[in-house]
Design a protein around this nucleic acid. Structure first.
Lengths: 416, 416
DNA sequence: TTTAGTTTGTGCGACGGCCATACAAAACCC
DNA sequence: GGGTTTTGTATGGCCGTCGCACAAACTAAA
């Protein structure tokens, strides 16, 4: 008790703190745009050319940067600089467990997808053991590719459709999978020989993906709605994922939008999820269980019918858009974000609901007159969450480059 | 364009960065609890005793710390340490403009109120010029006290009932004052001879006060509802005030809780403010304009009648509690905070609405099972916002102690 | 009273980081 | 080809923390 620090006071600094911070600054500077020379990085960051040289040297040593020929700035006087780019050798593995599929991807620091696999599987009523076994098999496939191409894995993360305690990687509750209180990160880790594994909510990771390589690139404050069966959201504040005190934040699906409405699984009444979820839309549109089974993918069926002009579907989707707009307006009034990204099944359905969302936001957002809140549509298909899982690791590499040394050592030990 | 840094990348570090960070760490450590010796600070922060000695020396030089006799740890072996405490000479001035009063306070780093004044004034339809003149007169009174007692002013901040752009200190819109787009910070500053002045929303500052010296001490994540005529909120996330992208966040009053409800001033329908605001409660309780004028203070009248068992009032307040609970549940589902603080007129009315708020939160907060969200009642009366205005400056002194040198120099120049 | 043991605060040299400066290399311009 | 400009590196200086040593001040025990 007597040794705890008051509040969340920042901890002490040190010369190594300085070094680490500057390693991050330089790396992010170079990763954040086109290739740059050392001199340009120095000018942009305020560091000296000499210091940047030293930092870059260390980052090259760590395989995080590489020199790629000359800077293309033809015509100007002076010695040309050597272009520095982010390395294509350091990669991260993303995994995803969802209701009807499993997925892997391997992505490098530059944002290129180096490997990808997506397998259908009805996980609704499977026990977690066999499902995680299959997931681990996918992961080992990815590791084989990584080894074959001589890449360096910086870490593994899993996207999960439910409430996740991000620090421990424990899945607390996933109603749509029927799982509860499962230490997914540890389970996956032990199946892969003890490599460290992280886990997080799919909506959070989808938001991360949108920020990393999606439509929200460059936006530091936005909300990413991620609707499938349930409705989740990932919230970016100040360039970082907002998780709340306990990591249970952003439960947009359980905002009350219809106080006298339908009962929700969560025990309350009139939650957004009872109107906007895939199932809810399908039900209102008169799509029965048989139809769903035949189509295998509810969203695709909805899109098909909407394209054919099915009025019941179009009306149902529009109703979802309206309710979503109301819920989002509350969220925007609270978070004052620059943009809202519609993801998951809302992407394909966007043509029939964006207008309603925009209208509701225009009317209900208090600061609409000062700061318009854009409505963007995700361009990832089902891949947002896996991509985000990889991005989780990649972002932490950029923020804390010095950790790569430790990470890659542990991997090398494992391989040898 | 070519010189902007990618995203919100942290800027470069330096040895001075280290020094400044550690000055803050040491100062906050000492300010955050009972008096401590240098050795104890060293043990708690991880710094060396030597380094702490050096840092403490500089902080004493800046008048931020002082040695107060010996550490009271009788009985233990060894040389006793010299107790270090936060100085009582550095103070901040808080100002407040509200609908029916103006206020000042002078508070020191230890949280003691050194001076305080509260004057009634109907600012509803006054032009801003005369009102700010009166406010400046109050501020000069405070400055006189500061000079007389040999204190050092670290800054001035103003609490305002409306939308404020915190960086510029500009009041964008205050419906209840009838003001819009007024550079309050600059106006007050020029009336005080050019001292730097900041301005912020009253709800934000009330939240700051609750965190600084109120019921939310030690809580890093909470929402402070601040209801008077309008309903605002200040949100603390990770130990800091959350302002959103443009500083227009936390507009809890304009969350939709009754989609088919009453029209709101803001143009939307069914906003929380139409049910929970002072006027709304009074209207439902059947308190007419004459009653209000006679009582001069609507809240006190409501409390009086509720204490006498007036059923219309009690029902109206309970209805407000219910609606507030619904709105807060949405906010808690999004922000996942540890606690909710009821402030402003909700403090006195708490006995007749806390139960309803608690119940609504219990039912509607998704994570209620894992992490109970406490409902706390503010103990500040009308003083929360002024105290918060002072706290705004005091907190920044703790976080950035080295700035005090510059600040106090500018003040000394002004005085001489 | 004396002695040993413990804790505190300070002084000194070392180490590690960045900055300023100087300098060679590699382009462009005339 | 010489002058100019820009890049990248090497060197000495400055600053801040760390580790260590030491005197001061107190407790406990002989």
């Amino acid at each position: 008790m007597s040794f705890e620090r008051a509040g969340n006071a920042p901890s002490r600094s040190d010369q190594t703190t300085v070094r680490r911070a500057n390693l991050g600054v330089v790396l992010q500077q170079i990763a954040g745009g086109e290739p740059r020379s050392r001199a340009r990085v120095a000018a942009e960051t305020g560091l000296t050319r000499g210091t940047v040289s030293s930092l870059v040297g260390e980052l090259i040593e760590l395989d995080l940067l590489r020199e790629t020929g000359e800077d293309q700035r033809s015509g100007r006087a002076g010695r040309p600089g050597l272009a520095l780019e982010v390395s294509d050798r350091v990669v991260a593995v993303g995994l995803e467990v969802n209701v009807d599929y499993l997925a892997v991807c391997v992505e490098d620091l530059a944002g290129n997808v180096r490997y990808q696999k997506h397998v259908h599987a009805d996980n609704r009523r499977s026990a977690f053991g066999p499902v995680l076994n299959r997931l681990a098999r996918l992961a080992r496939g990815a590791e084989k590719v990584i080894a074959a191409e001589g890449l360096i894995s910086a870490g593994i993360a899993v996207a999960l459709p439910g409430l996740v305690a991000a620090e421990s990687g424990r899945l607390l509750r996933a109603p749509n999978l029927g799982w509860s209180d499962i230490p997914v990160a540890d389970e996956v880790s032990s199946r892969l020989g003890g490599v460290p594994v992280r886990a997080d909510n799919e909506a959070n990771l989808a938001a991360l993906a949108e920020h990393w390589q999606g439509v929200a690139r460059g936006l530091d404050n936005f909300i990413c709605v991620f609707a499938e069966v349930g409705v989740g959201a990932g919230i970016f504040i100040g360039g970082d994922l907002f998780r709340g005190s306990h990591g249970f934040g952003a439960e947009l699906g359980h905002i009350t939008v219809a106080p006298g409405g339908l009962p929700c699984q969560c025990g309350a009444v009139g939650c957004l999820e009872t109107i906007v979820g895939q199932e809810a839309i399908a039900r209102r549109a008169g799509i029965c269980e048989d139809d769903k089974r035949r189509a295998r993918n509810v969203t695709r069926e909805l899109v098909r019918r909407a394209e054919q002009g099915d009025e019941a579907v179009i009306a149902s989707v529009a109703e979802a858009g309206h309710a979503l707009g109301i819920g989002l307006a509350s969220a925007v009034n609270l978070f004052d974000v620059d943009a809202v990204v519609l993801g998951g099944c809302l992407g394909p359905l966007a043509p029939w609901l964006v207008a309603d969302v925009r209208e509701a936001l225009g009317v209900r957002v208090l600061s609409a007159g000062w700061s318009g809140c854009e409505v963007l549509v995700s361009e990832f298909g089902e891949g947002a969450a896996v991509r985000g899982a990889a991005a989780l690791t990649l972002r932490s590499v950029l923020a804390e480059p010095w950790l790569v040394a430790e990470r890659s050592i542990s991997v090398r030990e494992r391989v040898s």
